[in-house]
């Protein structure tokens, strides 16, 4: 337990010491999206009955920021430690694969949650949000950040250089989170975009999260939960197999 706790605290200290870049910067860009889109589209008709565009946007942006930051935390920590070589300090210790996995995941979740929470608190100054089903909010917040952090661990292990990591960010994470319905309801999309969007697992994270706020969503929250949970379990299994095999970590 001490080993896990130490690695967790070390990972939290790592992003906290550079919080200007890891918390403040993503916060500012998320709030900019909110201000710009909510302003430009303020005349847009309600998305759901009684839910204006600005209010609709908040959970989506919040979840998008949480996912991107959770992914960024585990992936950049691992790639940095690999490139600078100091990952050996962890690899030389008796820490188990599970301890390693959960320490990186929980630290990444915490960073995602901090960014998400501050986005939410800031938007409460300008918008009134219904918190229809807080348990769904928490549930989707937790599971989704676990999935993003796990994906970050896989990317951090798979990438051997910083530019490979940038490719993960720019070609997978950013497009998938942007096209996840954070900015719009997918029911407003015509086919085939509607169908294609439904292949994106991030969509269910945002839709389920939104259900927690509005009791209204494009997909049943139970379906979303099943999909997101299933994706999470598959990624967990992949990550633990990778860690056990020593792939790219123990040459």
């Amino acid at each position: 337990m001490v080993g896990f706790k130490t690695l967790l605290i070390k990972e939290i200290m790592r992003f906290w010491k550079v919080s200007f870049q890891t918390i403040l910067a993503p916060l500012v860009s998320t709030l900019l999206y909110l201000v710009i889109f909510a302003h430009v589209l303020s005349t847009h008709s309600d998305i759901y009955p009684g839910v204006s565009y600005g209010v609709f946007l908040i959970p989506g942006l919040m979840m998008m920021a949480m996912l991107q930051n959770a992914f960024a935390n585990s992936s950049s920590s691992l790639i940095q430690s690999k490139v600078t070589g100091n990952l050996v300090f962890i690899l030389l210790t008796p820490l188990s694969e599970l301890e390693f996995y959960w320490a990186y995941v929980v630290a990444a979740m915490i960073r995602g949650m901090i960014v998400g929470t501050v986005v939410l608190l800031t938007s409460l100054f300008f918008f009134k949000l219904p918190f229809a089903n807080p348990l769904w909010i928490i549930l989707f917040g937790c599971i989704s950040t676990v999935v993003a952090s796990t994906l970050g661990i896989i990317a951090g292990i798979a990438a051997e250089k910083f530019d490979q990591m940038a490719a993960w960010q720019n070609f997978i994470i950013v497009p998938l989170t942007f096209l996840s319905g954070a900015f719009y309801s997918i029911s407003s999309l015509s086919s085939p975009w509607n169908t294609i969007s439904r292949l994106n697992p991030f969509l269910y994270m945002i839709d389920g999260f939104r259900y927690g706020f509005f009791s209204h969503s494009d997909v049943s929250p139970w379906l979303s939960l099943t999909i997101v949970g299933g994706v999470g379990l598959v990624l967990l299994w992949i990550t633990l197999s990778i860690l056990k095999s020593g792939w790219r970590l123990r040459g």
Binding site: L7, F89, I90
Partner: peptide, 20 residues
């Protein structure tokens, strides 16, 4: 190799923690 985020003492405390 070293971890540029930490001081010498922090480095050694963290390393101790990894070993429980």
């Amino acid at each position: 190799v070293f971890d540029p985020f930490f001081s010498v003492r922090e480095t050694l405390r963290i390393q101790s923690g990894y070993f429980g």
